[in-house]
Amino acid sequence: MLSEEDQETFTRLWTEAQPTVSHYLMSLVRDSSTVKDLLQNTALVLLRKFSDYDREKPFLPWAMGVAKFELLGHHRDAARSRVMFDSDLLDRYTERWVELAPRHSDEADALQTCLAKLPERLRKVVRLRYFEDRNSGEIAKSLEMKAGNVRVTLQRTREQLRECVERELGRERGLA
């Protein structure tokens, strides 16, 4: 049983790590209800094992390691995760995620600004992909475009947003 103090520490660390873990799982599972289950299981395992956690080490890699095992268990049981890598590739993918994700942690607000600047036509494609969760074939039907063109449009829009975010962050840092 964790002390009240440990529970508070756990809550703080998990609250900070949870968005990154959630993004990581979603990138591999692509199904929000499954990700929700996996996140819940991950949090439970972390909580149960929190007394073993070495406080001298960062929390995120530990949490991601647990999430990866939950993901592997789910994959073994359900065999439904189409985009899953083999074990070795998954290990490396997870390691790189732990390393790279914190570098992008300050981009969320800039991304909101950049989304607001997108032309309506591109925003519509983005909305269909990321809000309504449709793939390029479904978007193509809805907008009477070719699926290949939708993929190119999405790719260019992502690129445009990435450049905008870098400009926004650069401007912010330049002014700081």
Binding site: F85, A101, H104, L111, R158
Partner: peptide, 30 residues
């Protein structure tokens, strides 16, 4: 291709992180 060109893994992970951030941002925005 990823196994043969491990240097591309960073590019994939970066793109994937951005893709998830974009998904979340669009949901908040909408």
């Amino acid at each position: 291709w990823l196994r043969e060109h491990p240097e591309n893994l960073d590019q994939l992970v970066e793109a994937s992180i951005r893709d998830q951030q974009l998904r979340e941002a669009v949901q908040i925005f909408e």
